[in-house]
Design a protein around this nucleic acid. Sequence first.
DNA 1: ACCTGAACACCGTTCAAGT
DNA 2: ACCTGAACACCGTTCAAGT
Lengths: 188, 188
Amino acid sequence: MPRNRGPQNREEKREEIIAAAQRLLIDDGFESASTARIAKSAGVTVNTIYWYFQDKDELLIAVLDRILAEALATYAEIDGLPLNDRLLWVVDQLEQLHGLVNTVHARAATSPAIDAWHTGFHQLADALFADNLRTAGVAATDFAAMSAIGTFVIEGLLTHKRDDADKRAVIDLLVRSLIAASGQPGVS
Amino acid sequence: MPRNRGPQNREEKREEIIAAAQRLLIDDGFESASTARIAKSAGVTVNTIYWYFQDKDELLIAVLDRILAEALATYAEIDGLPLNDRLLWVVDQLEQLHGLVNTVHARAATSPAIDAWHTGFHQLADALFADNLRTAGVAATDFAAMSAIGTFVIEGLLTHKRDDADKRAVIDLLVRSLIAASGQPGVS
DNA sequence: ACCTGAACACCGTTCAAGT
DNA sequence: ACCTGAACACCGTTCAAGT
């Protein structure tokens, strides 16, 4: 039985490591989820991780990309809903990330790779938010500032635990005030 | 020359350690600023830090309290200014914290002490924000949700570097939209 | 009471060596 | 090409011992 099982199994093993990392990073946080424990959970030695990933940050990025892709794949679900319901859906969808949002922010200062991922994520988020505003009938003034506010509020909801009623109140007010500021009447 | 120099010098040395920690934590970040380097910078051995502080998180809290007290002491400066100018002042004031905001969020998950400090900080921030809204003539509906949005946006501005023009645009829109949502005409 | 030197368990990462 | 055992430098924290 050769140890090198070809390119097919390579992708498989890589995925196994990512899956183990995802579970531990989300459950225990970036610090507590040591590479040693991730390796053990994936059934490999620590150094094997470094064969597949440049460092722990690259592994984190693989996990983030996975979660993001999954979220985007189900994005079609909310096609017809009004803006506030869509935003609430996004918050609920991303809430599983929990501490990972903070981890990304914290490590962006140290790791250029994480910093780049973070920038890309915000570009995507801003674009999606602007698109949603357009759909909701908001005039195209201040789209940049509006997207910034929208993203900041969503990030705030992700990083500061609140119950469902509070989340809804914050998002409703957010949408209501952005629409009010744009001089539009409310859109149902 | 006795090594024990009495309670007066105790406070002095404590302050020296906090000062060294503040500089290193802000300049290098929580991770990079090891207790060893903080100790060396303060002219003591590592274990001395543990004589004055329970752990590294307690040292961080001492630093945070110091910065917060300093900021509150100069808070009177902006007494007459309109809300948006006040908020911009707060952002500029707290911007020296940089990565510390993320550090607090990240460590709140692990350290109960940091978590408690974080909760207290948000209570203070919410109270101040509500007070400012009242002064600006905003009706008292949704003060909780408004404060949440205000705090999240300010935190967003603190953790995502933007130039002065962007910061101003975001804050102006924030104030404008909150006032608009409260059904009030604009207040200069 | 205050401070130190030396240790402890752990961390992310690397490297020579194996198949 | 893929994976390992063993090491490296570093981390936060502790402890017995000194004054």
